[in-house]
């Protein structure tokens, strides 16, 4: 699962969706992998508009990456290197294995072989 995706997923339990604690999920015991991917400047700019920066910082801290600045970079005025760094973090950095926990209901989701599993047990479905 790409870090980009962590910025768009929350706890799948319906009763959590109204709580602000269901996003971002808390990530632990994550094993990361890197995949080289072609850089697409337009896409990074487009997607940065949609990124919730504090949520991204929360996830990168969870996985032990403290490289991102406190403030969301201004993509209109930043130089290409900043965009390339964002490409590296958002798209090329992937969680191969790990756990995601809802800060509202404490439910635990697993990421197995890069695929996150959001299926719910009967008592939460």
């Amino acid at each position: 699962m790409k870090l980009l995706t962590t910025n768009f997923v929350q706890c799948a339990v319906k009763s959590c969706s109204s709580s602000s604690n269901c996003f971002p999920l808390h990530f632990t015991e994550c094993e990361l992998v890197h995949e080289d991917l072609e850089f697409d400047e337009d896409f990074i700019k487009n997607v940065m508009v949609k990124i919730d920066w504090p949520a991204l910082l929360s996830v990168t801290r969870d996985i032990g990456n403290n490289s991102l600045p406190e403030e969301k970079p201004n993509i209109e005025s930043c130089d290409e290197q900043v965009l390339r760094d964002l490409h590296l973090v958002l798209l090329e950095t992937q969680i191969k294995d790990g756990k995601m926990i809802c800060k509202n209901c404490d439910h635990l989701y697993h990421i197995k072989n890069t695929i996150p599993n959001f299926l719910l047990p009967p008592h939460l479905a």
Binding site: K2, D52, I115
Partner: peptide
């Protein structure tokens, strides 16, 4: 981008996406 193991009737996507 990603493939997710997910029940569509209990999806995990934030509605802001």
């Amino acid at each position: 981008l990603d493939s997710l193991e997910m029940d569509f009737t209990h999806d995990a996507f934030q509605s802001r996406l």
